[in-house]
Design a protein around this nucleic acid. Structure first.
Lengths: 241, 241
DNA sequence: TGAATTTGGTTGTATATACAAGTTGATCGG
DNA sequence: CCGATCAACTTGTATATACAACCAAATTCA
């Protein structure tokens, strides 16, 4: 079942396709080999090649059309997932973490994304902490934090632990006449059709109920393709100037 | 390929399982029939039954353990998805909508969730509008809005069109010393392990960069299982009191 | 020329089969 | 009583095959 590298066959094909896409050897919207071609090339059955293509489609890397072929999706749909993948890889390379209520504080070579964010050089040592937040005995949030080592002392003393998004947004918000709920959801069929996103691309859903003269007047929900925000300007709350 | 009802076989099995779960005939965390049992019951091959189980797992309705069986996931993971499914069904029953830049305003029998939100009776007529927002020639957001028909005139005159989440959150935010990015993402492996959620459960990811003395000090990302918030208190921005 | 048809290729669904990998519970042996 | 082994069952991966549904381009025919 495994091949020589100990990897599953469909995973091997996925990695191959991903590498072609990431290096732009297969550019955006270009047609990629068919199921049969991949099956021949990797000496597997069509169903195995199909699985690789299908999972990549669900992950937003490809899109496919019956009777036509499989194509490289636009980078707007990909980049978010790929970047997360890198971060996760870096962290997992650290090994296992206990499900302790909080903390795992060590030094770590700085991953690329973090280096950019902190203005450090890549692989420079940073303090790394991992915290699991619980609510009602259930794990609710995972926090991975990278701290500039030269300034650690100050921040360990101060409010080092992040607020939860819930606390945070609740405190932020002097709103007028509306009640908002933000959720991360998978897009429904209608959203998918109009936004042209794969079924697996998570969306931000903002539900808003408006009040007037003491009664609820309108109910709206509003779905945004989450990853799109990475380009056109994130869903960002700017710092006070 | 189709059965008598014109539905695909795996879809039939999915519907059956969903009905059992929704009516609590199969309670939370209970073991459900194995692939082989379902295959026999529906007179299909194991691979077809498997597909139904697998898609429901990806949708967070079930969880499965190799060598053990398939189980009903906790309602915390399900409810969000199921509710959305109902809304989407109601909307799609309206037929097709053009990808116009905005508006499709008609009267509609009020779906259940909306009725609750507006304090109307179910199936009472509401004004329904559908708006697609574009950014850079690309569809960015889908807005479905239900308006209490008795109070429509006021709100058509006023600021009827919702701000985008981006505009909205940007305006909201007198923040101290941090820059935040909220994204909807699929959980990485690490998050899944700690939060015990299926790979398909979308999460809110809040990325925070903290500043001090003019320099970036810490970078953290924080992932929350989106649907969890539906119970313990949504990720809510409260109205000004 | 132009409309209808055919043809070949592609993805979608479904079956039947085989073995690997993992869990559980019963059996056996000390 | 405890531990190891075994057997049965479950999900996971993979193959080989078949046909349906769909599309695009070439071909045929009026």
């Amino acid at each position: 079942m495994d091949n020589s590298s100990g990897q599953k066959k469909f995973a091997t094909i996925k990695d191959y396709i991903l590498s072609q896409v990431e290096t732009a050897a297969w550019p955006e919207h270009s047609r990629i080999p068919s199921e049969n071609e991949l099956a021949t090339q990797f000496a597997v059955s069509r169903m195995t090649a199909r699985r690789a293509l299908q999972e990549l489609t669900e992950q937003g890397v490809l899109y496919r059309t019956q009777g036509v072929g499989s194509f490289v999706a636009s980078p707007k749909s990909q980049s978010s997932l790929l970047e997360i993948r890198n971060i996760a890889d870096e962290i997992q390379r650290r090994g296992h973490f206990h499900k302790a209520e909080l903390v795992q504080l060590t030094s770590l070579p700085c991953p690329g994304v973090v280096a950019t964010a902190l203005g450090l050089s890549r692989n420079a040592p940073v303090f790394f902490s991992l915290i699991v937040h619980y609510e009602n005995q259930q794990p609710l949030q995972l926090e991975a934090r990278y701290v500039n080592p030269e300034q650690v002392p100050d921040y360990l003393a101060q409010d080092f632990v992040l607020q939860t998004p819930h606390e945070y947004l609740s405190a932020v918000a002097p709103l007028t006449d509306a009640e908002h709920i933000v959720e991360a959801v998978l897009p429904d069929e209608l959203t998918r059709q109009h936004l042209k996103i794969p079924a697996s691309e998570p969306c931000l859903r903002l539900t808003r109920r408006t009040f007037s003269r003491g009664g609820a007047v309108s109910f709206a929900y509003l779905t945004s393709a989450g990853s799109r925000y990475r380009l056109g300007g994130h869903l960002t709350i700017h710092p006070k100037t």
